[in-house]
C-alpha cells in the first residue's frame, strides 16, 4: 500500500513570535523555518509502517510557495520515496488543503494518509478531519499508536479523558500526536541521497480544485501581557501572599 503524508513549512517552534506593529501579521522575514514538528512525527510513522513491510511507498506532499521544497527535502532525507509539491503563493486554508489532498488521493489511491495533528503556526487542527469527511473515510485523530493489520488499523488516540482506541477500515486518515514516535535524525548521506529523489510540482488548477471561500484575517495583535510578578525569598512569604489573595486557606 501507499501512504501519503501531509507536511507544512512553519516558523520553527523555538522562535519567539513577533507581531508586526501595523497588525498585518507576524514577522517571518529572516526567521528560521522548519518542518512542522507534528508532521515530522507523521513522516516517521509512515516510514516505520513501510519498514515493517506493511507499505511499499511513502509520498510526502506539501502545499505552498517554492521555499516549501526545503521541507519536502527534509521528508525525503528522512526516507520518503517521492514528494509532490502543490505550488501556490496564496495562503491556503484547511478546507482547500483538504480538497487538494482529496484530489491527490483520487489519483494516488493511498490506503493511509497521515498528517500532524496541528500545524504550530495557525494551530487549526482541521485538515485531517476535513479530508476524512470529504473522502467519506474514517478518521483517527491525535494518534499515539497505530497498528496496521491487513485492511484495518487500530489507533490509540490521546483524548482529554485518557486513551481511546478505535478500529478503522482502510483507507483512513490519521493525525499524529506528540507521543506517536520520536522522529529519526537525518544523516548527511541521506540528505545527499534525497537530492536525487523526485519532487513533482503541480498547481491547484492542475488538480481541478476549487479554492473554498475562506476566513478573512482582519488584523493580528499581540496577546495581553501578564503583569510582571515578584520573587519571594521564602515559603512563608509565599504563603502570606497567597493567603492575602484568598487563594489558600
Amino acid at each position: 500500500m501507499k501512504i501519503i503524508v501531509g507536511v507544512k513549512r512553519v516558523v520553527d517552534y523555538n522562535v519567539r513570535i513577533q507581531v508586526k506593529p501595523d497588525g498585518s501579521g507576524v514577522v517571518t522575514d529572516g526567521v528560521k523555518m522548519s518542518l512542522n514538528p507534528f508532521d515530522e512525527i507523521a513522516i516517521e510513522e509512515a516510514l516505520r509502517i513501510k519498514e515493517s513491510g506493511k507499505a511499499e511507498e511513502v509520498i510526502a506532499v506539501t502545499i505552498g510557495a517554492k521555499a516549501c521544497q526545503e521541507q519536502l527535502r527534509t521528508a525525503l532525507a528522512m526516507g520518503a520515496d517521492r514528494a509532490i509539491h502543490v505550488e501556490t503563493d496564496e495562503g491556503i486554508q484547511p478546507l482547500t488543503a483538504a480538497r487538494i489532498f482529496k484530489a491527490l488521493c483520487d489519483k494516488e489511491a493511498p490506503k493511509l494518509v497521515i498528517f500532524g495533528k496541528q500545524a504550530i503556526d495557525d494551530d487549526n487542527s482541521q485538515t485531517a478531519q476535513m479530508l476524512a469527511a470529504l473522502s467519506h473515510w474514517p478518521q483517527a485523530t491525535f494518534a499515539s499508536e497505530v497498528v496496521i493489520d491487513a485492511d484495518t488499523a487500530s489507533v490509540t488516540r490521546e483524548v482529554d479523558a485518557g486513551l481511546e482506541t478505535l478500529s478503522v477500515d482502510l483507507p483512513a486518515v490519521v493525525s499524529a500526536d506528540l507521543r506517536l514516535n520520536e522522529p529519526r535524525y537525518v544523516k548527511l548521506p541521506d540528505i545527499m541521497k534525497a537530492k536525487r529523489k523526485p519532487i513533482d510540482t503541480v498547481s491547484i488548477s492542475d488538480l481541478g480544485v476549487e479554492v473554498a471561500a475562506g476566513i478573512k484575517v482582519l488584523k493580528t495583535t499581540a496577546p495581553a501581557k501578564r503583569q510582571a510578578g515578584i520573587m519571594v525569598e521564602t515559603v512563608e512569604q509565599l504563603v502570606v501572599a497567597l493567603k492575602e489573595k484568598g487563594l489558600i486557606k
Binding site: 513570535i17 507576524v26 504550530i120 495557525d122 476566513i215 482582519l218 488584523k219 495583535t221 499581540a222 496577546p223
Partner: peptide, 10 residues
C-alpha cells in the same frame, strides 16, 4: 495562533 503568541481577528 502560534501557541497564543499572536491573536488574529477573523
Amino acid at each position: 495562533v502560534y501557541a497564543g503568541n499572536a491573536i488574529i481577528t477573523v
